[in-house]
Write a protein that binds this DNA or RNA. Structure first.
Lengths: 164, 164
DNA sequence: CTGAATGCAAAGCGTTTGCATATTT
DNA sequence: AAATATGCAAACGCTTTGCATTCAG
């Protein structure tokens, strides 16, 4: 089975802290490790629901557990929801998010990572995690919008007149 | 008066889009431009409330306006609320956030900014804004917590046993 | 005078929590 | 048997929205 190492990390983390290895925990682990990109709590919930009874509360509680033991990263890439992704050790990456279509593109920049560490150290911070999100307009949306692009924002303006 | 330039940008942006310059809008503008660091919507609301009647809805609607015209930056630095800050042109900066005391420290890194632009371009993105948040433990909290630091997380674990 | 902005209260939305019940060890 | 985890539903916290009223131009 894949993810054997991570799975053992998870189980030992749970037991070491007096927790129990439940089927719900393992199922959530499998689900999030079978996903390639980012996924939100609700989609995890519905995916698991297809073959097993689980509640949203359990999904949230155990996502927290996975985040705490360092196997999962939780970030706000969109406006509202958190997005989760399993961590690939040694593959720190960041995100480009299209404000039109919400597509998320990953990129890696060792140079930026190094600068971040340096900055944290210079300020006496012990860095634990980071989020670097660049939002803008992706190629696809740029070409589709090029004519219509008059307004300054990607969403409805607060000014009434521009609603017309 | 300070912020004359920004104020004219604001007023002309509003009028250009068929909007109206209301006392509430000007008051919010003044409040956010009188603040030095980051502030959330509720604190702006209460600050303005001290000398003028205003509703939360108006605060939120007009914050959106200020964000749209590029004078204000809105970011999720904490867990729940958005934090707002007025933009200092040409002074792009990012944030270190302490996960214990929530203190926010700003830093500037032209090198990181340049790399970000390069990366966006390489991926065909037209970058509009970015968020770089490094969360960790600040010097002060590190020294206070050095003995107690056993758990992996800054907050209560999802494991029941660790609550004791 | 016209239509945009405000205030109020309610709705929305994702996330968290209290408590009774089920399950792991 | 003891204590943790789950499910349910309600609570939460912040933000957004519908609608009647007020106000800027």
């Amino acid at each position: 089975m894949a993810n054997q190492v991570e799975r053992e990390i998870f189980e030992s983390y749970v037991r070491r802290n007096g927790g129990r290895v439940t089927p719900e925990r393992l199922r959530l682990f499998d689900e999030i490790f079978s996903q390639h990109g980012h996924i939100d709590a609700d989609r995890l919930y519905r995916a698991i629901r297809q073959d097993r009874k689980i509640s949203r509360a359990t999904v949230y509680r155990n996502l927290e557990l996975l985040v705490d033991c360092g196997l999962v990263r939780r970030q706000r890439l969109g406006q509202r929801r958190y997005l989760y992704e399993h961590v690939h050790p040694g593959q720190a990456h960041d995100h480009l998010v299209c404000r039109v279509c919400d597509r998320v593109v990953e990129f890696m920049s060792p140079a930026i990572s190094a600068l971040q560490r340096e900055i944290a150290r210079a300020h006496g911070f012990d860095p634990a995690e980071h989020t670097l999100k660049i939002s803008g307009i992706c190629v696809g949306c740029a070409s589709e919008t090029e004519v219509a692009a008059t307004g300054p924002s990607h969403r409805r303006s607060a000014l009434r007149s521009t609603l017309s």
